[in-house]
Design a protein around this nucleic acid. Structure first.
Length: 263
DNA sequence: TCGATCCTGTAG
DNA sequence: CTACAGGATCGA
């Protein structure tokens, strides 16, 4: 479920609920999530530390702990991270939970179990932040010039730009009227500039609606609040061209686009 | 660049 | 039952 906007929404909630909290004990239930790190060691090392700061980079969450350590969480497809008021009432199926010294707990839920949680000493190198000033026309031009990959796959390559997922890649390309099949290095400066602007716009809109969706009682609902123009609309009419939205497979993932207005 | 893989849930 | 899922990694 989570792409950059949803991860950002999670982080904003955690900043209010978890910053300054002291971890009394850690409990990794689904042992694989910390591989190759030993789950028992992660539990022990986290205990006694304070969550000093919550940071998001791309789709990665870093909980900075006292002692120069950080908890690195990736939600993957179905993960969620939240603070619950009473550790004793945690869901039975939690992937992991960290009880605070006040009885509350940081809860990691993840039905599909693909998410990860590890302790790190140094933050990994990641791609450029699409909502930062560093994501400029010049930067995008420089990076795309070196890639013949289809632009959609280029956008989803986390080592280049960190945080664009399947939905927002499709939506940004639709806004910019660019075919997802176009080689990255075939786009004109004007198209790249439009694309950069539309990526930022789509993500900012996404953050807005994700923050709203997560703030509602009961937490995040799987139905995306954001108005989607192409994603998931196979066979429906494009709002711009009147042609039918197509679905193709790129890199093993579904790509939705309008063959008429995206060139 | 493709396909398989890690897992579970849901829709058709 | 099959297909698919908003992610990422690995080996062929």
């Amino acid at each position: 479920m989570p792409e950059l906007p949803e991860v950002e929404a999670v982080c904003r909630k955690l900043r209010r609920a978890a910053e300054g909290c002291v971890i009394a004990s850690g409990h990794i239930v689904r042992k694989r999530i910390s591989a190759p790190q030993d789950p028992a060691e992660v539990e022990t090392r986290a205990a006694g530390r304070t969550i000093e700061r919550v940071e998001r980079r791309g789709k990665n969450i870093f909980l900075h702990l006292t002692g120069g350590l950080a908890m690195h969480v990736h939600l993957r497809m179905t993960g969620n991270l939240e603070v619950i008021p009473d550790a004793r009432f945690r869901p039975y199926a939690a992937s992991a939970w960290f009880e605070f010294d006040d009885g509350r707990a940081l809860l990691f839920e993840d039905p599909r179990g693909l998410g990860t949680l590890r302790l790190i000493d140094e933050l990994p190198e990641l791609g450029i932040e699409p909502l930062s000033r560093g994501f400029s026309d010049a930067a995008l031009t420089r990076m795309t010039a070196e890639s013949r990959a289809p632009i959609k796959l280029f956008l989803m390559d986390q080592t280049k730009i960190a945080g664009i997922g399947n939905i927002y890649a499709a939506e940004a390309l639709w806004r910019a009227r660019i075919s997802p099949l176009r080689p990255a290095n075939s786009l004109s400066p004007a198209r790249l500039s439009a694309l950069r602007r539309d990526i930022a716009a789509v993500l900012r809109d996404g953050v807005k609606s994700a923050v709203l969706a997560y703030s509602k009682p009961g937490g995040f609902k799987e139905a995306e609040q954001l108005q989607l123009n192409v994603y998931g609309r196979e066979g429906e009419t494009c709002f711009r061209g009147g042609a039918k939205i197509r679905r193709i497979i790129q890199g093993g993932r579904s790509t939705y686009y309008c063959g008429r207005c995206q060139r």
